[in-house]
Design a protein around this nucleic acid. Sequence first.
DNA 1: TGTGCCATGTAACGGGTTACATGATTGT
DNA 2: ACAATCATGTAACCCGTTACATGGCACA
Lengths: 200, 200
Amino acid sequence: MNVKDLCLGALTIGDASGYDLKKFFETTFSHFCVAGYGSIYPALAELATEGLVRCHEQPQQGRPGRKLYQLTAAGRKAFLQKLEKTAPRHTVKSDFLLSLYFAHLLPPQRLETILDERIAEIERQLSCHARCRRQSAQGSGEPVGERFVRGFGEAVLSAAREYLRVHRRELASASTARSRHTPNSPRRTLRGGLHALHHS
Amino acid sequence: MNVKDLCLGALTIGDASGYDLKKFFETTFSHFCVAGYGSIYPALAELATEGLVRCHEQPQQGRPGRKLYQLTAAGRKAFLQKLEKTAPRHTVKSDFLLSLYFAHLLPPQRLETILDERIAEIERQLSCHARCRRQSAQGSGEPVGERFVRGFGEAVLSAAREYLRVHRRELASASTARSRHTPNSPRRTLRGGLHALHHS
DNA sequence: TGTGCCATGTAACGGGTTACATGATTGT
DNA sequence: ACAATCATGTAACCCGTTACATGGCACA
């Protein structure tokens, strides 16, 4: 699912401009995908030439005219097909975990900062979810999946925070205990340690 | 952190060939990053020309000579600096969650499949972690971060599985209850529903 | 007065994925 | 015999990020 599909999907909910879409992605999809203006605007232009969306421009004085995009029947169909055909992958890309893997190479100070910042970020996301939940409890027309997906995010985020809280000590003690430079360590091969645990 | 940095990091643990590195990433880093041969081999070549790694080739009969790469002092330093400077981001990209958001547009059958497959995948990853844990409990020289990062993965994966188990019914009932085509729904604007919950 | 929001877009750049090409050895 | 593993690499392609360019309006 690329940005074009993302736009198609969002337009399923209601008409929107490129600007609106970005805001929507940020609030509702932020914990599992991202899209910047640099990909949204070109995507909408392409979708329009393909006839999957229609554009209604509303001139405004001073600022550039607001372009409201609307899904066509073909666009709706295209998205439905994408939904059914696409393998629902779920991947995590984390410099955070990568850094912690190498905790023994990090100054203790830096380690603390990394942990603190991550926990703070998790809390920010959790409170954002909570706000959204309250919000759409009143308003009607929330897709069933919205609550579910939000709940999933909250569950995972909470578990992550809890784990970090409980286990961060283990990392810190190890980091301060030994020097960052392991001098004269015997030459090792990555292969040796791994060979026994191959084929996942 | 790109593939070059990833290689540098792995070579911190021990010498390895491109092939070894891929295996290592698959087993140890699989839950937070990926790298294919198509990026690993060029990365190693570049690192060698930059003097961050040294290559020792071991000719073998029949197959292409095995190229063992070894970190240089400069390479180690470069990685340490990257570790300290890089912002430790943590992002999820999930067509799985995206699909579930649009559960109301999915045939119930498909919905079940998606859920089942994800749970199966989670279980696969969990058992892989468990195997690794047993493995490195015996062997010595496991970096402190390894256990921590593995534990993090397990915590998050378990929470996800639990959530899916408990809440999947909510999605299924909604999906079967109403038709996939909501005819004559009043034209809506994405903007309206979102406006109140802006600024995360 | 100045920060932030509204609003759209372009262009260069970076970087990973996929497919292709090759081929012997080891295990079932 | 056949599949999987070992082992390296190239090239086209896809696609997203970042930076740049523009400018009025609202609010503090």
